[in-house]
Amino acid sequence: MNPTNSNKKAINSPNPPSGVSDRLQVIANGGSVPAEIHPAIHDEDSVLDIRDFRLWYGEAQALFDINFSIPRGKVTAMIGPSGCGKSTLLRSVNRLNDLIDSVRISGDMILNGRSIYEPSVDVIELRKRMGMVFQKSNPFPMSIYENVIYPLRIDGERNHGVLDEVCERSLRGAALWEEVKDRLHESALGLSGGQQQRLCIARAISAEPDVLLMDEPCSALDPLATNKIEELIDQLKGDYTILIVTHNMQQAARSSDYTAFMYLGHVVEYGPTETLFQKPLLQETQDYVTGRFG
């Protein structure tokens, strides 16, 4: 598959906004440019290596030659305008894109030294090692308690002691315990939006995953709830490797250690958050993070 060709069909993107430099222009025209990767990354112990990853929805290519690694125990943010492929990339990590019939991929991702996309990989086992939080909170139609221990339930865990303990630990981890400890067996659908999202985080960490994937976890929440979630991300950092997709520059700046800037399926620049936001290598990144386009 010729990437240039497919790109034309795939992305009927508007003309790049004025003031956007050549690099983005090249990408928009279907060309390819290597990502600027800050050397600081290479000093980190990486938990996930993404290698030459490409992805197509049917005939339309959505990700182009993604190459970068996610450091262990850190928060990595992915930013970029809508449609740049950051959610797609996130969903490729736990192979949620497998559910869409038309998706094809090439390249690979290596989690803790083991391939994610090899044919012999058990997808279900893989997903159990990762937690995921979605843009819109999606508690299941069951009690708060059952929601939190859902990953253990499907694993066949029956021991009440273990389940109770996991439930409490996860809810505490998601800073929700105090609010719901008296109504664990009530429906989760009765919680407020922010609480529901924290419940989903509790569910995502209950199986103690290697990686926590967060897909714009705050976009549907009010500022107060957003604050809480950000505090939570801060607390979880260290215990978990967190990969977060966000639209919110401030959020990325505040809560992440590393940031990747993506554009139309390409990684443009990837480096420590502070550097990326203060003095990025590329003018394009500078333009984006300061809100001159996007």
Binding site: L96, I124, R127, M130, K136, P141, M142, I154, R203, A204
Partner: peptide, 27 residues
């Protein structure tokens, strides 16, 4: 049944049948 619920279940490592039995059917 909202797709987000199914995705949530798959993301927890549930198989198709587990998702149907525990999420889709009750809902």
């Amino acid at each position: 049944v909202p797709g987000s619920m199914r995705e949530g279940s798959y993301a927890c490592g549930a198989s198709k049948w587990q998702t149907i039995k525990r999420i889709v059917l009750p809902r």
